[in-house]
Simulated scan of single mutants.
Amino acid sequence: MSRVLVTGGASGLGAALVARFVAEGHQVVSTDVAADAPDDRTPYLKLDVRSAEDWAKAVAWCEENWDGLDILVNNAGIATGGRIDVESLDEWDRVVDINLMGVVRGCRAFTPVFKRQRSGHIVNTASAAGLVHPPMMSSYNTVKAGVVALSETLSHELHPYGVTVSVVCPSFFRTNLGDSIQGDDTAMGATARQLIEKSPRSADDIAAGVITGIKKKQFLIIPDRPALMAWRTKRFARPLYERQMRKIATRARERAEASGDQG
């Protein structure tokens, strides 16, 4: 039985992961930005991933109540995106602070615990956007690619201490992530919401694949076929991948021109 902490555990993939860990008999503490727990299934901590103080409190809680931690799931994040000349720098700052630096803070907070234990597993939620980079998603692609790079770096750095690192890269799946979109590029935001809401995959579908990957101690966990095929296309059929990406960009330009949106 493992001791598990999940950020962003109140909804979406985080909640699905919490439910699956609990169902398998693990000890789980769920964390999120809300002051109060969404339910009483598990212990709950308020944890804003932008707050070093909240991270310190989470470490203290795990040490006081569990004498350590086995699996840290850095899952909290927001959706964003937009054309490079439309999305504001404030939105870039927001997504970097949450989606990238939130993961960095979590890894920094718990690495001393894992080093002392000579064991542990860090699971960082990135995205297929960390592996393949569609147009009109500069900020999201950038931070998710950063999470992949961070995870690979730590997989080497922490290996001598017995620490495993995994990075999760799903494609779109149904969740409330679209509610977090606040950027200035409203046209691209609407497209992203539609892709999320109309996906045939649920958060629980993705969580099942993630849990399987964690059990196998896989570094790269790609839990759905569309994400896997996109990654393979980029790796092994680069000209096809580039044609697909440029078709997406061309269609976006045509829609913008037709609507008079030259942003």
Rank of each mutant, 00 (worst) to 15 (best):
L13V: 04
I181W: 01
A60G: 10
R251L: 13
R116G: 01
A258Q: 06
T7V: 06
A237T: 13
V210A: 14
T142S: 12
T125S: 09
R255V: 14
A16M: 04
K115R: 15
R235D: 13
M229H: 11
A145F: 01
Y161C: 01
V132T: 14
S166C: 08
A10I: 01
V165N: 03
D93M: 02
V29K: 00
D54A: 07
L195V: 15
E63Y: 07
G81E: 01
D40P: 08
S139N: 15
I78W: 05
V168N: 03
S2C: 08
V168L: 00
L220F: 06
G8D: 06
V49E: 00
D85W: 14
V6W: 00
A190Q: 06
A56D: 13
V132Y: 00
N65F: 08
S166V: 09
P239I: 12
T250Q: 15
L45R: 06
V165I: 10
F219G: 05
A16Q: 01
L69Q: 06
T42E: 09
G8K: 03
S119P: 08
Q27I: 08
L131Y: 03
Q182G: 11
A203V: 04
S11V: 08
R118N: 11
Y140E: 11
D48W: 05
G260I: 11
S155V: 01
H159D: 11
A252N: 09
T142C: 08
E254R: 15
N99W: 05
L47P: 02
E254Q: 14
I196C: 07
N74I: 09
S11H: 11
I214W: 02
I221H: 06
T111Y: 05
M101Y: 11
N99S: 09
F236C: 00
A203D: 00
A256H: 14
V123T: 00
T153Y: 08
A208M: 05
L150I: 11
W92H: 11
D204A: 09
V18E: 02
R201S: 12
V143Q: 07
L158Q: 09
L158C: 06
T7A: 05
P134F: 04
K247P: 04
S155D: 02
I248T: 10
E63F: 08
S171N: 10
V73Q: 02
E64R: 14
E197N: 15
V95M: 00
P200G: 10
W66H: 15
T7E: 01
G120N: 01
M245S: 12
V22S: 07
S166N: 09
R174S: 05
L158M: 08
D184M: 11
S180V: 00
Y140R: 06
I84L: 13
